[in-house]
Design a protein around this nucleic acid. Structure first.
Lengths: 130, 130
DNA sequence: GATAAAACCTGTAGTAGCTACAGATGCAAG
DNA sequence: CTTGCATCTGTAGCTACTACAGGTTTTATC
């Protein structure tokens, strides 16, 4: 299987696949006589794992750790669960931060009538130190 | 006022101030005989504006636009309000995305008992293409 | 006036996670 | 044999900073 096929089957861009190889998330694949990368079904599985994890917001570093656990086959549920829950806490914190932002933005946006005058309560808010 | 003082008064790191100058968010300040940057109160105001906008999640590009409007003094409330509301929509979208993530993560984390067996429902989820 | 310490200077490289080239090959079909 | 697509390597770009290294200026103390 050539890189283009792997790309289609996983939904990862070709450049991304080569990038993952460079940073050692994917092993160096064997090559054809002309130097083209050759992949098998095992690599499809691995790349789908990576992609799925990215969709869930795991960092490449967290994914590297997960893959090491899976590769070593000596992982315990506890290790995996800990990584997941740490990440979940991150997500929760981000949501809380964004909610606060949303509130402030809605407030200052609501104060502005969108008229033609160059005296804008939004700008005023941004200019005042707090 | 030297860069260290500006830094203290605005809460921006010195490196960040120089960075903002490099990318033309801040104008090049006059220099002392020895080449040190000299700032006045006007620049404190401008930098506070930038900082406050960053805290609200505006990108440097959005801030550049806001500053251009303020600098030109020919902005209307409508222009400012549009930028703010576009940004607010962004924030709302991010919150929605993260909520979905949170749900999925909580679900898969809940399926896992955290035992010692190397058969983990989290890993299983990540390995399956959907 | 000498000296030491703090603050400042420039320029460059690193961070995350890709994406986008340029310019050179490999390979298959007509 | 040539056209055209896929692939190759290597490098630079993106956001918004941060962190040096190695040098100079300013300020404080003696």
């Amino acid at each position: 299987m050539l890189i283009g096929t792997l790309s289609e089957r996983t939904g990862c861009h070709i450049e991304t696949i080569r990038y993952y190889e460079r940073i050692k998330l994917l092993p160096k694949p064997p090559r054809s006589g002309g130097g083209h990368r050759l992949y098998d079904r095992e690599q499809v599985k691995r790349l789908v794992f990576i992609r799925r994890s990215r969709e869930l917001g795991f960092s490449l570093d967290e994914i590297r750790t997960l893959l090491r656990l899976v590769d070593g086959k000596r992982y315990t549920c506890q290790e995996v669960k800990t990584i997941t829950e740490t990440h979940l806490d991150d997500v929760k914190r981000k949501i809380a931060d964004l909610r606060r932002l949303q509130k402030t933005l809605a407030t200052i946006s609501g104060q502005c009538e969108g008229g033609l005058v160059p005296d804008c309560p939004i700008i005023d808010t941004l200019l005042s130190s707090r």
